[in-house]
C-alpha cells in the first residue's frame, strides 16, 4: 500500500522514517506542529490516532481502529497538510485550542462577534503571521472561537460559512 486512496482512511505513520506513502504527514510531525505553532503539549494527543483520507486532510480519532478502514467518517477533521502552511480546522481549534499557549489572539466582545460572523478586521498583533487560535473570554475563561489568518495587519476569519453566526457582543 504505497498510494493515497481517497476512499479509505489510512493511519499516519509514526515517524517520517516509517512513511510509505509519499507526501503523507507522520504522527510525529502533526503533534510537533501543534507544539511548535501553538505550544500544545504533545501529551495532549496521547490516546489519539491520526488518519488521512484523500490528499492532505488529517482526521483525529480518540482510540484506534483497524487500518486501513473504509467508513464514511472517522473522528474529527483536524488539520490540512500537503500544503506550505498547514491549517487546523475550526472544530479542532475549538476542541484542542484551550491547551494552546502560543499564537493565541484574544478578541474583545465586539471583535469576537465580528470574527464569529466571518468578518475580516484590522487588529494589532506583533506575534507570528499565519494561522492563529482566536479566542475570547466566556463564562470565566478564555475560549477558542476558531482559526484566524493574520497577514499585513489584517485578521481574516476562516470560520466556515455554515458555522458563521451573528452573535451578541459580550
Amino acid at each position: 500500500m504505497s498510494e493515497n486512496d481517497g476512499q479509505v482512511f489510512d493511519r499516519l505513520p509514526e515517524t517520517p522514517d516509517d512513511r510509505e506513502v509519499p507526501g503523507r504527514a507522520s504522527r510525529e510531525e502533526v503533534v510537533e506542529w501543534w507544539a511548535e505553532r501553538f505550544g500544545v503539549d504533545p501529551n495532549r494527543f496521547d490516546g489519539y490516532t491520526f488518519w488521512e483520507k484523500g490528499a492532505g486532510k488529517i482526521w483525529i480519532l480518540s482510540g484506534d481502529v483497524a487500518d486501513p478502514i473504509a467508513v464514511e467518517g472517522l473522528g474529527m477533521a483536524f488539520l490540512r497538510t500537503r500544503q506550505e502552511h498547514w491549517k487546523p480546522t475550526t472544530n479542532a481549534v475549538q476542541r484542542f485550542g484551550r491547551a494552546a499557549t502560543r499564537n493565541v489572539l484574544e478578541l474583545d466582545g465586539e471583535r469576537a462577534a465580528r470574527f464569529a460572523a466571518g468578518e475580516d478586521q484590522e487588529v494589532e498583533w506583533d506575534g507570528d503571521w499565519g494561522y492563529l487560535v482566536v479566542a475570547h473570554e466566556l463564562a470565566g475563561d478564555l475560549e477558542p472561537i476558531g482559526v484566524g489568518l493574520y497577514l499585513h495587519g489584517e485578521l481574516r476569519s476562516t470560520i466556515p460559512k455554515g458555522r458563521r453566526e451573528s452573535l451578541a457582543e459580550l
Binding site: 481502529v65 483497524a66 487500518d67 478502514i69 467508513v71 464514511e72 467518517g73 474529527m76 472544530n91 476542541r95
Partner: peptide
C-alpha cells in the same frame, strides 16, 4: 457528521449501511 464535529466528538466512526444486515467487516481488519 456536522453535529458531531461542532460538539467536538472524536470517538466516532460513521457508516452508511442498512442496519438489518449491518456488516462489521470494516472494523475487523
Amino acid at each position: 457528521r456536522s453535529n458531531a464535529e461542532r460538539l467536538g466528538v472524536t470517538n466516532l466512526a460513521v457508516t452508511n449501511q442498512d442496519a438489518r444486515n449491518f456488516s462489521l467487516k470494516p472494523f475487523e481488519g
